[in-house]
């Protein structure tokens, strides 16, 4: 039975590359309007799981439901329809290098809406301004800093005002202040637009600032071993892997 409060439901999911299993027996759901963090050590499969959640990779087995519909078994058209409700910010930004920031942001709007050129450009400029990129509309991605690239990527992910935003390691490579501002932006987006936000990260500061619930992936056991608020996980001594992670215990 599908839970009406869930926007994404993961059922008995096993993921991997070819026959190599990365994670198995994943069962969880993400609630509408929630800030949900997927955490775990480096190389545990966090980003791989995230890419499965928006249908980029096909799982080995199991199912992922988006608003009650299977994203795994959907055809191309249905999936494109679902992807319009999702925005993704990739780790390195993944901005199109030969396009300006404005062109990067306008691209999804041009493809998916019948808006006039003026409206599309106004909207794109507004999205860029939202992330402090006014004045940089005609810059190429190679001409701006790493932090700005992430913000531009976020503006592009927000182009169609999606219901769910996926972040792959948003604070990777950012200085502490930029990282803190990005965290604040995530909180603002969630509070003002009610956007459901799913973040992959291992930055504890970020997790404690933004996360409402944290899914912990255990690299040794190749499955999820905890799902709770960050405070609960920090104080949970029953699960050594989780406790070590949240209390920065060295190996």
């Amino acid at each position: 039975m599908n839970d009406p409060n869930s926007i994404i439901e993961v059922k008995d999911l096993t993921i991997g590359y070819g026959e190599r299993v990365v994670m198995r027996n994943l069962n969880f759901s993400v609630k509408k309007g929630e800030i949900f963090v997927i955490a775990g050590g480096s190389g545990c499969g966090k980003s791989t799981l995230l890419k499965h959640l928006f249908g980029l990779y096909a799982p080995i087995s199991g199912d992922i439901l988006f608003k009650g519909k299977s994203i795994v078994n959907s055809d191309e058209e249905e999936r494109a329809e679902m992807l319009r409700d999702m925005g993704v910010m990739f780790q390195g930004g993944a901005l199109f290098g030969s396009d300006t920031l404005l062109e990067n942001v306008t691209l999804p709007m041009k493809e998916y809406t019948d808006f006039s050129q003026e409206l599309i450009e106004r909207s794109a400029r507004f999205k860029l301004a939202l992330f402090n990129l006014s004045g940089f509309e005609h810059f190429l991605p190679s001409e701006i800093s790493g932090g700005m690239k992430k913000r531009a990527a976020l503006a592009r992910a927000m182009a169609l005002d999606p219901e769910v935003l996926f972040f792959d390691e948003p604070s990777a490579g950012l200085d502490p202040r930029s990282s803190a501002s990005l965290d604040q932006t995530i909180l603002d987006l969630n509070a003002s637009l009610g956007t459901t936000i799913i973040i992959v990260t291992h930055e504890l500061d970020s997790i404690f600032t933004v996360a409402q619930r944290v899914l912990f992936l255990d690299v040794e056991k190749k499955t999820m071993t905890a799902l709770a608020s960050p405070e609960e996980l920090k104080n949970d001594k029953s699960n050594p892997a989780v406790w070590n992670f949240f209390n920065r215990e060295p190996f």
Partner: peptide, 18 residues
């Protein structure tokens, strides 16, 4: 190839573009 490395192809797919 470079777009593949910098995840731009994944970004295209994530926007529903083939």
């Amino acid at each position: 190839g470079t777009m593949q490395v910098s995840e731009e192809i994944d970004a295209l797919r994530s926007m529903g573009f083939e």
